[in-house]
């Protein structure tokens, strides 16, 4: 019962925050509302027994990506013009696209035969992730480093041009 209430509270937090992010007219409020959405998802990771993902969600998404997003918002020209900064454009195409995508997903949810697993023992996962990084997944582990290097250099080169201009 406890986990169920917690799940619905967290889902409500995530969905309401995501709605504020999407619908707020003020881009600064959108950026800060993203915190609730990411934190709600982090809490749902706990309920799924994914403790490492939980801490990474807080560490990377809330501690890193959100800060970068807020910096990007703070760098935006005319953030004080609250009425025009986050205007909804293209409402009709968006409604059609979201309606079709949502319809397909809803159909899939209704008509799939879901595999019902018993609640797991929820043991700490970090040890096994580390073991896999040195064992069968050693190559992806090293390649991830290369991907990060490419991301670092690419992001710096692109944003450096922005700084110079």
């Amino acid at each position: 019962m406890g986990p169920l209430i917690t799940f619905y509270a967290l889902a409500l937090l995530a969905i309401v925050s995501a709605a504020i992010t999407a619908f707020s007219r003020n881009i600064v409020h959108s950026a800060f509302a993203l915190f609730g959405a990411l934190a709600g998802v982090a809490g749902i990771y706990v309920l799924l027994g994914a403790d490492f993902l939980f801490i990474i969600q807080i560490f990377i998404y809330i501690g890193g990506i959100l800060v970068v997003t807020i910096f990007a918002v703070m760098l935006t020209q005319g953030i004080a013009d609250v009425n025009v900064s986050n205007r909804a454009v293209g409402v009709l195409p968006a409604l059609v696209t979201a309606g079709v995508a949502g319809g397909v997903m809803f159909y899939a949810i209704i008509h799939s035969s879901w595999y019902h697993a018993r609640p797991g023992s929820a043991t700490p996962t970090t040890y096994w992730i580390g073991d896999a990084f040195l064992g069968p997944y050693v190559l992806p582990f090293e390649v991830a480093s290369l991907v990060l290097l490419a991301a670092l250099i690419g992001a710096i080169v692109i944003s450096r041009q922005e700084v110079r201009e």
């Binding site: 990474i56 560490f59 990377i60 501690g63 890193g64 990506i65 800060v67 970068v68 910096f71 990007a72 703070m74 760098l75 935006t76 020209q77 953030i79 990084f133 582990f141 991830a144 480093s145 990060l148 991301a151 670092l152 992001a155 710096i156 944003s159 450096r160 922005e162 700084v163």
Partner: peptide, 22 residues
């Protein structure tokens, strides 16, 4: 508007944060 330098530093920070996560 913040100085754009913050953004570059934050980008570098995120990359090395992901490194720590690995």
């Amino acid at each position: 508007n913040f100085n754009v330098r913050f953004y570059l530093i934050a980008l570098v920070f995120v990359i090395f944060e992901v490194e720590v996560a690995f």
